[in-house]
Design a protein around this nucleic acid. Structure first.
Lengths: 182, 182
DNA sequence: TTGTATGTACAGTTTTTTCTGTACAAAGTA
DNA sequence: TACTTTGTACAGAAAAAACTGTACATACAA
């Protein structure tokens, strides 16, 4: 028979593992998920040494993964007077965490894609204008131009979608507090 | 000086590489992105042998990655009478591709998390009810319960968010056709 | 039925990613 | 100033993922 403390640990472990198995949606490896999950249940900021001891992993690993977690805005550094070591805490607004991940990751993708599309589109239009190309090839160029214009429009939509998340407009269609009771 | 055909290839390659570099957002490796990008520009369904030749990769790889692409709903199998080989085509509705990816990936995560939360929450509530536990531990249990109830609420929101994508309600706040002209 | 074509399971290889230990730079303490 | 303490750069080890070739099952053709 487990004692109460063991039961509590087991309960936490289940949630932490669940996070670890799904953190790839944030582009992070399972161990970073475990780290975040552990920090989530701690009601105090942790040092790298704390994390290292808690997870049984090297301090170096803690250092690199905490940086990744910070960049993804899942944790943040906090200050406490008199403490020399760096302290980190899991962010507690999961809605905001989701929105931050979404906007950070997709904004970059949109930006890169849009630049590539603009460049290719210009090249293709120049190609049409300047050269006397075969009818066959011209058809292909026109086909590509059409496709690129279509996906440019799509990325414009995606950009506006990201805006909607960023400025919290998303809560207008999907309200935050459903007020569900058990 | 490049000829027209080379220019066309270069233009396509830029877009394809851009897709390859960002397809990790769909949980797929770059090579799958290259495969999709190539198929996107082809105006006809391709066989595994076509893809193998086009990308210079083994047929086995094509087979496994086309399955992944199918599961992610980025491509689909099409039928053509008289053709014995399997034919695949890139889906052309990128808005729908995005929505499908989003719903498939996040729905599974929500489902797994929700199950874990329910289980842990039950265990913790049993723990509170049955055993005479120390005040100190009780405080921790209560803290965990509060946290789990919070994230349960969050996952409920996420589930509703997925619904909004799935039933196209998302286009209400972010309309599809912006009708931007150059 | 036998022969041929096609897709994939599986084992092994290559490549990429993650993790560790050492060494060191930066910053605080005495 | 010299002496600690702390975080991280870097090189190498371990683990995971992607890719290939062979072998085979399935389906169609004759």
């Amino acid at each position: 028979m487990m004692d109460a403390h063991e039961k509590l640990e087991k309960s936490r472990k289940r949630i932490t593992e669940s996070i670890a198995q799904n953190i790839h949606l944030y582009g992070l490896p399972p161990s970073a998920g475990r780290q975040f999950g552990m920090m989530f249940f701690e009601n105090r900021p942790l040092t790298l040494d704390d994390m290292s001891a808690e997870l049984g992993m090297s301090k170096t690993s803690m250092s690199t993964s905490i940086r990744t977690l910070s960049e993804a805005k899942l944790v943040e550094r906090v200050w406490e007077r008199g403490v020399r070591k760096d302290l980190y805490e899991a962010k507690d607004d999961w809605y905001q965490i989701f929105i931050d991940m979404f906007t950070v990751k997709w904004r970059r993708a949109v930006s890169l894609h849009t630049a590539a599309i603009r460049k290719s589109l210009n090249e293709l239009k120049d190609l049409k204008r300047d050269e006397g190309i075969s009818t066959e090839l011209l058809a292909e160029v026109d086909s590509d131009i059409e496709k690129l214009e279509y996906i440019r429009e799509y990325y414009n939509w995606l950009d506006r979608l990201i805006d909607a998340f960023e400025d919290q407009k998303i809560f207008d269609i999907v309200p935050r507090n459903d007020d569900m009771s058990e």
